[in-house]
């Protein structure tokens, strides 16, 4: 019976997290268009429902009923597989994110932990799946049989490999501080007020993580693989209908994951900013912090112009990579001197 309850708990948690994530993705597209609109002194979507709130659903219905084209020169199996790889990995990463502490179901002594999987290698799992997810974009561009698509995916491959190195190195400082790869432990060590958050101990790492993270999920100013003005959408040029929507959703899901990891590693996860505020559930704090990051990602998209490709590669290898190494060295030195 215990086993059955356990199974039910896992399934319910998976469904709830998946549903919330998909709803977040849908409303992030709305938020992004709205915020970008106001940044550019426009209204953004305002026709479908109040404040355009039903826009994501009408977009979804439109994408679903559009004609699904597969180009004649395309590698058909890979062409269909690529968006699936992108969306599956983007969603699966969320399995290890701890989005709250635990609570007891009223009337029973059944404790529900608010995370799907609490594994010893949580942080590495995120990187592993993110690196698999890159295949989605790279193969999508290649299999289209289109020059722009191929150029986009070559750029994506080079850019992601380059920034993955700096991204991985930037968070090693946090791992050294918390002496664990388990995300729950990293969060627990940041308990007791906002002055304990890792962002004060690893400020350089935090900024580097945000920059590399933006490059990793191909957001402006690093959106080289799909640069509209030069590559006419790059890797997803031949995609239409639901396959394009999958790529689109994968990008936004990935953005939420990047923000969630940033919150977990640097901003104390579900911990409240001040100890006496702990009567508000951790999930609320997690969502507030997540929203701040997501808003920042949208805001900076409306602010910065796209960089040139050679500038991106130079920036990644000659500035970010040495900076992360220096940050790592200093962190390790301080920790070893302290004992």
């Amino acid at each position: 019976m215990q086993l059955l309850y356990h199974l039910i708990e896992i399934i319910v948690k998976c469904v709830v997290v998946f549903g919330c994530l998909m709803l977040c993705v849908a409303y992030m597209t709305w938020l992004e268009r709205k915020v970008l609109g106001h940044i550019q002194i426009r209204y953004g979507p305002n026709r479908c429902g109040p404040f355009g709130l039903l826009q994501p659903f009408s977009d979804g219905i439109k994408a679903f009923f559009k004609e699904d084209l597969i180009p004649g020169r395309a590698d058909k199996v890979v062409f269909v597989l690529a968006p699936m790889i992108a969306i599956v990995t983007a969603i699966s990463i969320f399995a290890v994110i701890p989005f709250g502490n635990q609570f007891t179901i009223p009337g029973t002594n059944w404790v529900v932990k608010l995370r799907l999987a609490d594994i010893d290698i949580g942080l590495l799992y995120i990187f592993g799946l993110a690196s698999i997810g890159e295949f989605g974009i790279v193969l999508g561009g290649w299999s289209s049989g289109n020059k722009y698509g191929l150029t986009g995916s070559l750029r994506a491959a080079a850019q992601m490999i380059s920034y993955e190195v700096a991204l991985g190195l930037s968070i090693i400082g946090v791992i050294i501080l918390s002496q664990s790869l388990r995300l729950t432990e990293i969060v627990n060590l940041q308990a007791g007020g906002f002055w304990n958050w890792n962002v004060w101990y690893q400020p350089v790492a935090f900024i580097l993580y945000i920059i590399c993270g933006l490059a990793e999920i191909n957001r402006t100013p690093f959106d080289m693989p799909e640069a509209e003005s030069e590559l006419a959408c790059g890797f997803n040029i031949e995609y239409s209908s639901m396959k394009f929507a999958l790529f689109f959703m994968a990008e936004y899901a990935h953005m939420i994951t990047m923000a969630a990891v940033a919150v977990t590693l640097f901003w104390g996860g579900w911990q409240p900013p001040l100890p006496f505020l702990s009567f508000i559930p951790g999930v609320v704090w997690f969502c507030i912090k997540l929203f701040i990051f997501v808003f920042f990602f949208i805001w900076q998209r409306g602010t910065f112009p796209r960089l040139r490709y050679d500038q991106i590669m130079k920036f990644g290898w000659k500035i970010l990579f040495p900076l992360t190494l220096v940050n790592l060295l200093i962190t390790a030195l301080v920790i070893s001197l302290k004992g």
Partner: peptide, 26 residues
């Protein structure tokens, strides 16, 4: 052996095959 498993994914399935794919595309 979780650690070896995830290193297998990060290093081999992720990084190395990505480089191989990159070269094949060129």
């Amino acid at each position: 052996s979780q650690f070896i498993a995830i290193i297998q994914v990060v290093v081999y399935a992720g990084a190395i095959v990505m480089l191989i794919v990159f070269v094949i595309m060129l």
